[in-house]
Amino acid sequence: MASRVVRERVRGEVRQGILDEAERLIREEGLPGLTMRKLASRLGYAPMSLYSYFADKQALLRELGRQGFEVIARRLEGAVERGGVDGVRELLVEFVRYAHEDPVHYRALFLGDRPVTDRPECPDAVNPAFALLSEHVAECVARGALSGDVLATSTVLWTAVHGAATVVVTFEHCPFGSWETYAETMVDTALAGVRARPLTGG
């Protein structure tokens, strides 16, 4: 029993080491620069040995995505100091701040050629950051501070903040002078929209 526990621990450490090196490679060369052969070479492994831990490159990317989403969710949760709509606003602005501070990570997770999840139709199933936003939106809807269907309203806000984040990481000069002013303007506009009229899912 003890030897099996040790083997599983060692396997987990090796697997995480592969993921850590893959993230470093992506940061250095971008998502297109990640290949299983190049990753194996950097680690000093035979190329086929990586497939003992990940079925293929997409499986590795999905796990990187899962871990990346958890990091973002923890960051967003830590940024929320107030309740209600003010808390939703803090969360959304912090998301753009994350993209501004770590554009390589944002591009890899959200702007790649293929999604890092195999469940693109259900973002909250794999993205705890979206789930966190939905929780705050649900609280606001229950209190009457925001209107409409929780999933629809959350999706509208998520879409708006992604648009703002993509502009921030793509263009050197943001509208309104600074990225923060631009982000706050976009978030305030989106929140005004979901306050003004109900949204329905489906």
Results as ranks from 00 to 15, higher is better:
residue 3 S to F: 14
residue 3 S to L: 15
residue 4 R to D: 13
residue 4 R to H: 12
residue 5 V to T: 12
residue 11 R to D: 07
residue 11 R to N: 04
residue 12 G to I: 04
residue 13 E to W: 09
residue 13 E to K: 07
residue 14 V to E: 04
residue 15 R to N: 03
residue 15 R to G: 05
residue 21 E to Q: 09
residue 23 E to I: 12
residue 24 R to I: 03
residue 25 L to W: 06
residue 27 R to A: 11
residue 28 E to G: 11
residue 28 E to M: 12
residue 30 G to V: 05
residue 32 P to Q: 04
residue 32 P to F: 08
residue 32 P to I: 05
residue 34 L to Q: 03
residue 35 T to K: 02
residue 38 K to W: 10
residue 38 K to Y: 10
residue 39 L to A: 03
residue 40 A to N: 05
residue 41 S to P: 00
residue 42 R to K: 06
residue 47 P to C: 05
residue 48 M to I: 11
residue 50 L to A: 00
residue 52 S to E: 13
residue 56 D to R: 03
residue 56 D to I: 10
residue 57 K to F: 00
residue 61 L to I: 09
residue 63 E to Q: 15
residue 64 L to E: 07
residue 65 G to E: 01
residue 68 G to E: 01
residue 73 A to K: 03
residue 76 L to M: 11
residue 78 G to K: 10
residue 78 G to C: 01
residue 78 G to N: 09
residue 79 A to I: 05
residue 82 R to G: 08
residue 82 R to E: 13
residue 84 G to W: 01
residue 84 G to H: 02
residue 86 D to F: 05
residue 91 L to P: 06
residue 91 L to W: 04
residue 94 E to L: 02
residue 94 E to N: 08
residue 95 F to S: 09
residue 97 R to N: 07
residue 98 Y to Q: 09
residue 98 Y to P: 00
residue 99 A to Y: 01
residue 101 E to H: 11
residue 103 P to H: 01
residue 104 V to M: 13
residue 104 V to C: 09
residue 107 R to I: 01
residue 107 R to S: 08
residue 109 L to G: 00
residue 113 D to L: 07
residue 115 P to L: 06
residue 116 V to S: 03
residue 116 V to T: 12
residue 118 D to F: 09
residue 119 R to P: 00
residue 119 R to F: 12
residue 120 P to V: 02
residue 121 E to D: 11
residue 122 C to I: 08
residue 122 C to F: 14
residue 126 V to Y: 09
residue 127 N to G: 10
residue 132 L to I: 11
residue 133 L to P: 02
residue 136 H to Q: 14
residue 136 H to S: 07
residue 137 V to P: 11
residue 137 V to C: 14
residue 139 E to P: 01
residue 140 C to M: 06
residue 140 C to L: 06
residue 141 V to C: 04
residue 142 A to R: 15
residue 143 R to D: 08
residue 143 R to K: 14
residue 144 G to K: 04
residue 145 A to M: 14
residue 146 L to N: 05
residue 150 V to N: 05
residue 151 L to I: 14
residue 157 L to S: 06
residue 158 W to Q: 00
residue 159 T to D: 15
residue 160 A to N: 09
residue 165 A to V: 03
residue 165 A to K: 04
residue 167 V to E: 05
residue 170 T to V: 02
residue 172 E to Q: 07
residue 175 P to W: 09
residue 175 P to K: 06
residue 178 S to L: 07
residue 179 W to K: 10
residue 180 E to W: 13
residue 180 E to P: 09
residue 180 E to D: 15
residue 183 A to F: 02
residue 185 T to I: 12
residue 185 T to R: 15
residue 185 T to S: 13
residue 186 M to P: 00
residue 187 V to G: 01
residue 188 D to L: 09
residue 188 D to W: 02
residue 191 L to Y: 07
residue 191 L to V: 10
residue 191 L to S: 04
residue 192 A to H: 10
residue 194 V to R: 00
residue 195 R to F: 12
residue 195 R to P: 06
residue 197 R to A: 15
residue 197 R to E: 13
residue 199 L to Y: 14
residue 200 T to I: 13
residue 200 T to P: 00
